[in-house]
């Protein structure tokens, strides 16, 4: 559902208030570009896609009924534009990135760990707040297969609910969960290497 502040902003946008448009752009444009980037080859194309999406927003504002959150509606428009613009050459994805969350060989025939995770205890709290570690996560995200990256980005960075994520990407709840599970497991694996190399 759309919040009260958003409703007021949208009313102003409907009335043709340029400042309302600027406020929306400031708030949502960077995340929209990031979302578009998943579908198109480079940043310039992503900016173009999102420009078109904003035109779609101002043209379609009368049709927005506030049944979904504003963010979900905006993102849905971006994904639709990006897909139709997207004669995108698929990003090269190494085969080993497409597998399950945790590799089967980490578990024995009894289902217990053969290769258990090693705790990240040393300085992890200091490192958690380190800008460099957040940068590493951003970098690791780029190494995820596209669909996993989309889902992890929407859920864990943009903070969408499972239902909103399904609406934006047009996927089922079950798929959403599998992709999120694999994406997070893969990210954890990348971070594990970072923590050990610390």
């Amino acid at each position: 559902m759309t919040g009260a502040g958003e409703v007021a902003l949208l009313d102003r946008l409907r009335a043709g208030d340029e400042q309302a448009f600027v406020a929306l752009v400031r708030q949502h444009h960077p995340a929209m570009v990031r979302l578009a980037s998943v579908y198109v080859p480079n940043r310039d194309v992503a900016e173009e896609v999102v420009q078109e999406a904003w035109l779609g927003v101002v043209r379609g504002i009368e049709k927005f009924e506030g049944r979904s959150s504003l963010k979900t509606w905006l993102y849905r428009i971006v994904v639709n534009r990006a897909r139709s613009a997207g004669v995108r050459e698929r990003r090269e994805t190494p085969a080993d990135l497409s597998g399950p969350g945790e590799q089967a060989e980490r578990f024995g025939s009894d289902g217990g760990w053969v290769d258990p995770p090693v705790p990240w205890t040393d300085h992890v709290d200091d490192r958690l707040t380190a800008v460099s570690l957040v940068d590493r996560v951003r970098h690791c995200l780029d190494r995820l297969p596209d669909v996993q990256r989309q889902v992890v980005t929407l859920r864990d960075i943009d903070g969408l609910t499972p239902g909103e994520t399904c609406t934006v990407l047009g996927i089922t709840e079950a798929n959403q969960r599998v992709l999120l599970h694999r994406g997070r497991a893969r990210l954890r694996g990348f971070l594990d290497v970072e923590m050990r190399e610390g």
Partner: peptide, 11 residues
Amino acid sequence: TTIALAGQVRP
């Protein structure tokens, strides 16, 4: 921890 770190990534 992974989720918390991802939550700190800003566009």
